[in-house]
Design a binder for these strands. Structure first.
Length: 429
RNA sequence: GGAGAGGUGGCUGAGUGGCCGAAAGCGGCGGUCUUGAAAACCGUUGAGGGUUUAUCCCCUCCCAGGGUUCGAAUCCCUGCCUCUCCGCCA
């Protein structure tokens, strides 16, 4: 949610900023609504004031034993007027709310203009692309070779876009997750967090998935409305919903591994092969809750923390700054980390790190208390994948494959694999 | 699943129709005292919103949503949550 005060103080700025998102904001419609809001709100509050003061004098007269009937006659009809005014105000506020909550965040000044992912700007590249003296296999073929990745059986159990992992491949994914959690906890200062995988509508509203993006979610219950989490961002960020965080607790840095569930509506026919786009996948998420003055630096740091995982795994990657057309609804600025996949001969997204500034915090009513003023201020929220575990598994399998189809275990994962240096086909399941 | 009790400010806890945004205590902040600290004493201390250049003033909020009433923390209805006991259970 954008700051309503910004609309009142500088509507042209808002309009120009939304234009960067290709949104043609109807300023006249807004101004009309806002004028009515102001008039009706003032009137409603005046009526409330009148009711309060008259009721008070009735009470006082009664206490003195006076006849209150004349006073009661005076308030005749006031209730009806008030009720009508309150209803009108509620209606206007509802319209205002639905207008406001449909608007995306304002982009950071550094975000380049563009329509889609083709216009994203590469910031940096890291690592040497592996060279193979044999024909590379992709993770699907490698997984089949190891009998460790079974899409057919998952389709039998559930449906398309699910996978069953077995043996060392399943263990490798677990090793990846453990390694990420430990690294972020021990080296990057994040507090390990465990949260529910099912969330209510308020939580999804708080982080911005609802009301606009309900199609992307799996709904598991009606009354109450409950959904499977599309990312740990939702439950973890909602920890601070309706809270005023003490200054001593700031910044709040949390790392959390969860499965993620996405309906992938609108993605039919896209990435149908393999593990890249699944209804269920594992991810380690980084979330930071910070002071406004520190959010830009924290965003850079959080992105570095995600990059550090790729570096430790020695996976070549590039860092891109998303253009205006590709930046998510709630984000002001997003870096994507794209890992090199030899099986696809291209870079694929493995992490997305966003600074939401106060956009989520305003919806969440998430604040911290500034000791200098003693007053609560909205926090800034930042999150990023650190990393998507399923795609990391893909990247390791493809980058570390041998001519025989074996998979070399990256150094940093060996201790998590019982000391194994190689996952050999001969070892079987 | 069955039975019961309860949800009030940062915390404990009083408040069953008006004098209550709310006693008291604790905590926090400021001050007096002190070489400093503690203790004691004094003062202060919820959140959101509207109007306004600003002060002022006003509105809303006692789990949530409805209702009764001139007037609701207080009465009624619905929902949610917590606790206790029994049953079941990883």
């Amino acid at each position: 949610m954008l700051d309503p005060h910004l609309f009142r103080s500088d509507l042209e700025f808002v309009q120009a900023q939304l234009k960067r998102r290709a949104i043609d904001f109807d300023a006249d419609f807004y101004t009309d609504l806002e004028n009515r809001r102001k008039a009706v709100q003032v009137k409603t509050q005046e009526l409330q004031n009148e009711r309060n003061s008259r009721s008070k004098s009735i009470g006082q007269a009664k206490a003195k034993g006076e006849d209150v009937q004349p006073l009661l006659d005076q308030v005749q009809g006031l209730g009806e007027q008030l009720k009508a005014a309150e209803a009108e105000l509620a209606d206007i506020q509802l319209q205002m709310k639905s207008l406001m909550e449909g608007l995306p965040n304002i982009l950071d000044a550094s975000v380049p203009a563009g329509n889609d992912e083709d216009d994203n700007v590469e910031i940096s590249r890291w690592g040497e692309l592996p060279e193979f003296s044999f024909e590379v296999k992709d993770h699907v073929d490698l997984g089949a070779l190891h009998k460790g990745m079974d899409f057919e059986v998952a389709a039998k159990i559930t449906s398309a876009r699910f996978v069953a992992l077995k043996g060392n491949i399943a263990r490798l994914q677990r090793a990846i997750i453990q390694f990420m959690l430990d690294t972020h906890g021990d080296e990057h200062g994040y507090s390990e967090t465990y949260v529910p995988y099912i969330v209510n509508a308020d939580s999804l509203y708080g982080t911005g998935q609802l009301p606009k993006f309900s199609d992307d979610l799996f709904k598991v219950s009606t009354d109450p409305d409950l959904y499977l989490i599309p990312t740990a961002e939702v439950p973890v960020t909602n920890i601070v919903r309706n809270e005023i965080v003490d200054n001593a607790e700031m910044p709040v840095k949390m790392v959390c591994h969860t499965p993620c569930f996405r309906s992938e509506a609108g993605a039919y026919g896209k990435d149908v092969r393999g593990l890249i786009r699944q209804h269920q996948f594992e991810k380690v998420e980084l979330v930071q809750v910070v002071k406004a003055s520190e959010s830009e630096q924290a965003h850079e740091e959080l992105t570095n923390h995600a990059e550090n995982i790729l570096k430790k795994l020695k996976l070549p990657y590039r860092k891109v700054l998303l253009c205006s057309g590709d930046t998510g609804f709630s984000s002001t600025k997003t870096y994507d980390l794209e890992v090199w996949l030899p099986g696809q001969d291209k870079y694929r997204e493995i992490s997305s790190c966003s600074n939401f500034k106060d956009f989520q915090a305003r919806r969440l009513k998430a604040r911290w208390r500034n000791p200098e003023t003693g007053k609560p201020e909205l926090v800034h929220t930042i999150n990023g994948s650190g990393l998507a575990a399923g795609r990391t598994l893909v990247a390791i399998m493809e980058n570390y494959q041998t001519a025989e189809g074996d998979i070399v275990v990256p150094d940093v994962l060996q201790s998590y694999m019982g000391g194994k240096k190689l996952i050999s086909i001969k070892m079987g399941i």
